[in-house]
Design a protein around this nucleic acid. Structure first.
Length: 260
DNA sequence: ATGGTCGGCAACCGA
């Protein structure tokens, strides 16, 4: 591990549409690792050269139109892998790697559509399969970061209207149960280590008028760490600076700093 | 406000 390691997560909603925002953000912030979700590009179309030009390596898995994950790193990306162990593997939803001795699992978890749909059952099942995956490949005592767009707001502080939205696919007792099973395996929510305030969001729906300005948002993006790493987490912040630029994503980055 | 806006990609799907 480095003496100092900054890890970030950003759902970009198309890496090609957001390339100027992402490269500017990397130049400004110089994080060690940036995990991306919803890159929405096939591998042949991923702009890897734009990252190597500014000193970053990348590992990515995409598909046409939907999903897609990437790990962007200043350091060597060791043993990059994609997807869950069981079928369907959903490779464009999970990227894992080892960087400077830290294990990284970057996920774009299914949104779930509606509570009574097959897609919601698929989301719940995805969480179960992710727990099996984590338990097979890692131990709670490992240096492990699980990050990404988890498509869940954890509690009333994490969404703008918890009463109205309770029971919707990203704020539902079943997804809370599924996420808490993984948290109980051995993760700490690094943002909540440092901030217990409500209304700190990482996502604002494009479909709500002036959602960002009115702060009608959700906290859906997380940096979870196992105890050995969480003990070293000195800071975790949500960076809304990219929201001020042209054509922002509907999400904004979250960044955690770890000191050895 | 039971609406609304994005991105991909070429008619709608997904969020």
């Amino acid at each position: 591990m480095l003496e100092h390691m900054k890890i970030a997560s950003f759902n970009v909603n198309s890496i090609r549409a957001r390339l100027p925002i992402v490269t500017k953000w990397l130049n400004d912030n110089q994080v060690d690792v940036l995990c991306l979700q919803e890159t929405k590009a096939q591998d042949k179309d991923f702009p890897a050269e734009s990252f190597s030009d500014i000193g970053y390596n990348c590992s990515f898995k995409g598909q046409k139109s939907y999903n897609g994950v990437a790990v962007i790193s200043k350091h060597k990306i060791e043993n990059p892998t994609f997807g869950l162990d069981s079928e369907p593997k959903d490779e464009p939803r999970l990227a894992a790697a080892r960087i400077k001795g830290a294990n990284i699992v970057n996920t774009y978890i299914p949104q779930g559509f509606e509570p009574d749909s097959d897609k919601f059952q698929y989301k719940l099942n995805w969480y179960d399969r992710l727990l099996q995956y984590l338990d097979k490949h890692y131990k709670p005592g490992d240096l492990l970061v699980w990050t990404g767009d988890l498509n869940i707001a954890r509690d009333d502080r994490d969404l703008h209207d918890p009463e109205k939205l309770y029971g919707s696919v990203c704020y539902h007792p079943d997804v809370h149960k599924a996420l808490n099973k993984i948290m109980d395996w051995g993760f700490t929510d690094t943002f909540r280590m440092h901030c217990d305030e409500p209304a700190k969001y990482t996502f604002w729906d494009y479909r709500l008028r002036n959602a960002f300005k009115r702060n009608l948002g959700w906290r859906l993006d997380y940096i979870m760490a196992t105890k050995p790493l969480a003990d070293k987490c000195t800071e975790c912040i949500i960076d809304t600076a990219p929201r001020q630029l042209e054509r922002p994503s509907d999400h904004t980055p979250i960044v955690a700093n770890f000191n050895i």
